[in-house]
């Protein structure tokens, strides 16, 4: 991310682990889980369970660098388990976005062409 890191300012406790989010999508995934929980889509213990399942499956060799991949997978698990969206719906939407990125001229905002 290009935003200045507030932790590098003098007098602030430094974060030797680097930026808290390595990439913007991680912050989005993080916010999405918080917001779905805030809206009552699932309880926090349900979320903690879903996430710990994914982390457990990743095994002891996992060093934390793929944390937000597990986070996103857990969120998809919970969203489909709660029937907020189906698996095929998620896949179809991902393809639609891929397509939109491929067909958007450089420098223009990427938008989904809806067939709703």
């Amino acid at each position: 991310m290009n935003a200045p890191d507030p932790l590098t300012l003098p007098n602030l406790p430094r974060d030797e682990a680097g930026p808290v989010f390595a990439e913007p999508w991680q912050a989005q995934a993080f916010a999405l889980a918080l917001q779905l929980h805030a809206q009552g889509a699932f309880s926090w213990p349900e979320w903690a369970d879903a996430l710990s399942e994914r982390l457990k499956a990743a095994g002891p060799a996992d060093d934390g660098s793929r944390y937000y991949e597990h986070w996103l997978a857990a969120l998809e698990d919970l969203v489909t388990a709660k029937a907020l969206a189906s698996g095929p719906e998620l896949v179809a939407r991902r393809y639609a976005w891929e397509d939109a990125y491929r067909h958007t001229a450089h420098g223009r905002p990427v938008e989904l062409i809806r067939e709703l």
């Binding site: 999508w25 989005q28 995934a29 999405l32 809206q39 996103l72 998809e76 907020l84 969206a85 991902r94």
Partner: peptide
């Protein structure tokens, strides 16, 4: 990964489950 998040996010927004 980014597109997976985008897919999930856009569906949740459309369904009115989250406010962008």
């Amino acid at each position: 990964m980014a597109l997976r998040v985008k897919a999930l996010e856009s569906l949740m927004v459309e369904k009115g489950l989250v406010d962008p």
